[in-house]
Design a protein around this nucleic acid. Structure first.
Lengths: 349, 349
DNA sequence: TTGCCAATTTGGAACGTTCCAATTAAAAGC
DNA sequence: GCTTTTAATTGGAACGTTCCAAATTGGCAA
């Protein structure tokens, strides 16, 4: 209840030392005598001192702010929430705090948020970019020597590190699984064609088709918004072509649910009459009916790895960009129809 | 690519004015001549100036930091993620940024995180407290005159504002609904007895029982961890008593799912042989089988309100504590059995 | 001319820390 | 006893901003 806040000078006065000594104690310097250190610490506790990081950052004007920025495109989505949690885990235990903001896929907001974080002197940024983010959006950051790690979605051309899941491989094993269940006409449904993730997943589809000797009919590749509604729309189009598919790999789980809706609207039961595979393994995937077969990625793991990479770059001063791909795995549930097969066949999967 | 970062003094030199003038421009003061302002702004853009909020905060040593801290107990849980998003929405549009951290229900971590936020000079805190948080944990904050709003869970005895959902009313209407479906033996399952939320919900249960003329048998009140496993355990105990219940209101949705598991393990089908009502309306509630009848609360709305309240208190300098209760509503789905009833009866619900 | 007013602008002194060079105190070497 | 070494401490100058009181304009009435 003194006038203002209690500063290092107040501590110094009360402990009978100089402010410099108090500062040394604060930084855990070995130069200071144990007795003095104890005394100073005692006084600090007594007076209820709280460290002013702002002032400290000002002086040691560098990347020592102990703040790392985290910007995600959709925190409502459990996937990205998990990502943020993963980041928080490693960031917190390294004594940093995280500035977290949500852009809701809005590029302008993303710019604002990043600018604001710069003003606050973040020492690094982890970004799960909003759709259509360009390298130019990250340019000022990297130019200022602030390490940036993009996660989940790549930003083409950006000179930043990245941690993304193995999109190509994921769709590849999905298609492979469907082929092993006897499907030959397999559609690739959903997603925006102008995104890097789409490209990678489509590449996986093409590679699998080639590997399994399927003819890769362009009619079977259908883009649409990666949402539930987009899924219903996509399956509608897929079933309107001449030589109909009997199975589909979907851009993500939300879209796969929409595909299930669309199938039912046509009187087809997903998992029995048509095989569906999603991507992401969101939390609802296992409780939905039918339970969704999907490609599981580990968002929390991606978050952790992104944070580790960022911290490494921060402490290294300046490291060159590094790209990590996080592996994925197929989770077989009901929507692919595998559960309908006789047991001896299922064991082969 | 000059030596260090570009400061207000660099701008002043380049624009041929004094640093004070630049500062005035920065703050949008009406004192400065339009021509000068334009000139300064141009130079700032040209030199790539970035505002140093840390330095500013240092001078105007007050609650002007434009940072608000948000601490949630479990970001993995979609409920709290939504809360954070709600907060972010209003906080961002007020020109603040949010420091978000996750405590994972860990009290020590919560303390660390709050301390860290204080060091960074947050101008307010929104806290969804970890279990067993005590008023003492918030004491230093409020003593320092930092506005605090607790959300979702109340902290008994804390001199802080709060935004919580109407727990009492929620369980009340849940029980009432079950009674309207003909149930007389209704259990209250799950939750930790030492929490404020438990008390409120139990009070709702008791009030509804009294209002509907049920005999409120203490055997029907069973506490357990509010998790899926805890639900299975709770229903097990509930069905082992002499005069078995035919329905249950559950502490939350996760627990309700566990109750469904436990019922099935006993050969009972939830929704047909036993009515189950959850609380929270998590995202899986509508896709589960049977779809869960539950009390819907609006976490994003709570977040928004909490943020608005906090901002109000920040700008007001010092306002006294205020308590907001956020209303809830019953979402009737399948697990309560209402869908099995003839249509004319359902309309009464 | 002189004085006065409004409109702009400005130099320093903060803010709370860290860092540097310099100082002091005590111990050690000759 | 005198220098040298080591250990511990210290004052003052930064850091980049805001704020205050004061100064500089130009116009305009007396």
């Amino acid at each position: 209840m003194t006038k203002g806040r209690v500063t290092v000078i107040d501590i110094a006065k009360a402990a009978g030392v100089s402010k410099s000594t108090v500062s040394l104690v604060l930084q855990g310097s070995p130069l200071v005598n144990d007795g003095t250190r104890a005394k100073v610490n005692a006084v600090m506790r007594e007076l209820g001192y709280v460290y002013n990081r702002g002032a400290a950052n000002l002086r040691q004007s560098g990347s020592k702010s102990k703040i790392i920025g985290v910007v995600v495109n959709d925190l409502t989505n459990g996937f990205f929430a998990e990502l943020a949690v993963g980041v928080d885990m490693v960031v917190q235990s390294a004594g940093f705090v995280q500035f977290l903001s949500n852009t809701s896929e809005n590029l302008d907001r993303q710019r604002e948020v990043i600018a604001s974080m710069r003003e606050h002197g973040i020492s690094g940024l982890i970004l799960s970019p909003a759709r259509a983010t360009e390298a130019a959006d990250l340019k000022p950051l990297v130019a200022a020597g602030i390490p940036v790690v993009v996660a989940v979605r790549n930003v083409p051309g950006a000179k930043a590190s990245s941690v993304v899941s193995d999109n190509r491989e994921g769709i590849f094993i999905g298609v492979q699984h469907l082929v092993s269940l006897g499907h030959r006409r397999i559609a690739f449904l959903g997603g925006f064609r102008d995104t890097a993730v789409f490209d990678e997943r489509l590449a996986g589809y093409r590679a699998a088709a080639a590997a399994c000797g399927l003819d890769c009919d362009e009619d079977l590749i259908i883009d649409s918004p990666p949402s539930r509604a987009g899924g219903a729309e996509a399956i509608e189009r897929a079933l309107s072509i001449g030589d109909k598919p009997t199975a589909a790999v979907c851009f993500n789980d939300a879209l796969a649910f929409g595909v299930c809706d669309g199938l039912r609207a046509r009187g087809l039961e997903p998992g029995r009459d048509f095989a569906v595979i999603g991507f992401d393994d969101v939390i609802e995937a296992k409780t939905a009916v039918p339970a969704l077969t999907t490609i599981s990625v580990d968002p929390q793991g991606i978050g952790r790895r992104a944070a580790q990479l960022l911290l490494k770059q921060i402490s290294a001063g300046k490291a060159e960009a590094e790209a990590i791909v996080s592996s994925v795995r197929l989770v077989v549930r009901e929507s692919c129809g595998a559960m309908n097969q006789p047991l001896q066949e299922r064991k082969q999967v």
